[in-house]
């Protein structure tokens, strides 16, 4: 682009952006001493994001540049967000199948014992199936006759 006369960001804009960056740095340090509770991290990241945006747009010239460069950078940033968010989706909810506690294990064991007792209470002979239990010993034949009827 050199000989077509490159786009030059005026020096005044560069200096103004630099001033804004310094002010924002002061702000983020100041905010760190204010108890914001759960907002601490979002505020710090928000200010950092704002600073980064200023650097990208003006120092890195992206505001005046070929859109494909901006697209490239945006896609890269999106995938960082994807990486962080989806990983946190796991780690923030790790162990969310919360039914497996020491108590659950005890309950399951107790249930198994009760089942065992119930089974023991029934005389095992009454459960045994003997060939004579079936009305017709020749199963194939019986089915055939069923079909025939």
């Amino acid at each position: 682009m050199a000989h077509d006369g490159p786009h030059i960001v005026p020096k005044s804009i560069l200096l103004k952006v630099f001033g804004a960056l310094i002010v924002l740095t002061g702000l983020t340090v100041g905010v760190a001493y204010v108890p914001l509770g759960p907002l601490t991290v979002p505020v710090a990241l928000g200010i950092a994001g704002l600073k980064a945006t200023l650097v990208v747009l003006f120092f890195m010239h992206l505001k005046y540049d070929n859109p494909v460069n901006a697209l490239t950078f945006t896609i890269g940033t999106i995938f960082v967000v994807v990486f962080v968010t989806i990983t946190l989706l796991d780690t923030a909810f790790r162990g969310d199948l919360g039914n497996v506690t020491a108590q659950t294990v005890q309950e399951i064991q107790a249930e198994q014992e009760r089942a065992q007792q119930r089974q023991d209470a029934i005389p095992s002979d009454s459960l045994r199936i003997a060939p004579s239990d079936y009305p017709n010993q020749d199963r194939g034949a019986s089915m055939e006759s069923d079909e025939g009827s």
């Binding site: 983020t28 120092f59 890195m60």
Partner: peptide, 21 residues
Amino acid sequence: GLYWHLVDIVWIFLFPLLYLI
């Protein structure tokens, strides 16, 4: 210049995350 600005941007995030919060 582009590279150097990126190094700067990384630090812009590192500073609050590591030092401030």
